[in-house]
Design a protein around this nucleic acid. Structure first.
Lengths: 190, 190
DNA sequence: TGGGTCTTGGGACAAATGTCCTTTTAAACT
DNA sequence: AGTTTAAAAGGACATTTGTCCCAAGACCCA
């Protein structure tokens, strides 16, 4: 699924408009750029204003597993900034992306001093845990075909927006298996 | 793995000791009791003082998938209290359990007014996202045998603490497959 | 004591998924 | 226009995992 977070985007947009000291700035990224890299220190929190990214982990086996696709309003980097640990995933753009960027220090300051901001962060983290858990459970107890069906029904323009490779990595399967499922479900005909 | 959270337990213990208005109370639960039930409203946040619980989802297929085992200091109910949504999992005791219980209102008040508490909650949620994501990715890209090996090495007394059925549900496999993996790894001999 | 029933372990087979490889198509570059 | 590279589709076979079923032991209890 493609995660979005309208509320957060609205709030950040408002903050940015009032921010005279340029603590929240707009940045752009071209296709294929990594905004955060696995196993590195994270200095900024990002909020997507426009565009699509993938959030993925590279396993010791060399396989990439896509955690989620992030769309408008989605936030990343916040986990690492909060815990101070290295990033466990890479965030890479799939389209040209515009986003807001906040430094670690500013983010932590906002959490501390802006109770609305704090509440939004708590909510987005709670939401992340929920959907991650649900998806994990779903993946473990359903076959590829069912997983693809679910994904397709929530993102009807799936195949035009995301490459086969990325879809396969999101479902945690090989392209070969994905192709089989597409065939069985007749999704290639539509 | 069995999750624990020493820091949080310490802080709650301190809070409870100073709490004259009994907003944080100690409760006990017998084996097999459900402290939180999937798809129901959540009125309390719990912190485990002593004992072991499983956190699991029941799928539409009837399969249970165990998200995590929670040990001392681990917190649950906080997600639902923060977002106001129904619980997406069930928390059930595997041993007799003692825990601290905080009402939704008190929990939200603490988050708002106690910045140390707030920070601990942010951290524990960030940690939950991290390990959930890592485990999901690991499960998708490794075979049962590897997953069991990893689990076993992090919980050597696995088989005495947790039933076969629960281990299988944690790994997201059938008991038959678990038995095969145990055999192959020679874990039944030790 | 002799059934019930529950747990455990595993055989035999079926279904799901992965691996390897080839062909085709499409896009990109010079 | 021709060459190169990447993406897509799928055949053939191997491996992994699940399903179904049966047998052995443990425990209860009327």
């Amino acid at each position: 699924m493609i995660r979005i977070n309208e509320k957060f985007l609205d709030y950040i947009t408002k903050l940015e408009a009032m921010d005279s000291s340029k603590e929240i700035i707009k940045v752009e990224a071209a296709i294929g750029e990594a905004l955060i890299t696995q196993k590195t220190n994270v200095l900024f929190v990002y909020i997507i204003k426009k565009g699509l990214t993938k959030c993925y982990l590279t396993e010791d086996t060399g396989n990439d597993f896509i955690q989620e696709f992030f769309g408008e309003g989605e936030v990343f980097g916040e986990l690492e900034v909060i815990t101070g640990e290295f990033s466990f995933c890479t965030i890479e753009t799939l389209t040209p992306v515009e986003c807001y960027r906040i430094s670690k220090e500013t983010f932590l300051k906002l959490i501390k001093n802006d109770s609305i901001f704090n509440s939004l962060v708590l909510n987005l983290m709670a939401t992340k845990i929920r959907y991650t858990a649900l998806r994990h459970s779903y993946n473990q107890s359903h076959v590829i075909e069912d997983r693809l069906k679910g994904l397709y029904s929530s993102v009807p323009d799936l195949f035009t927006r995301i490459t086969k490779n990325d879809i396969a990595n999101y479902l945690g399967v090989t392209i070969r298996s994905l192709n089989r499922a597409i065939k069985t479900l007749d999704l290639d005909r539509s």
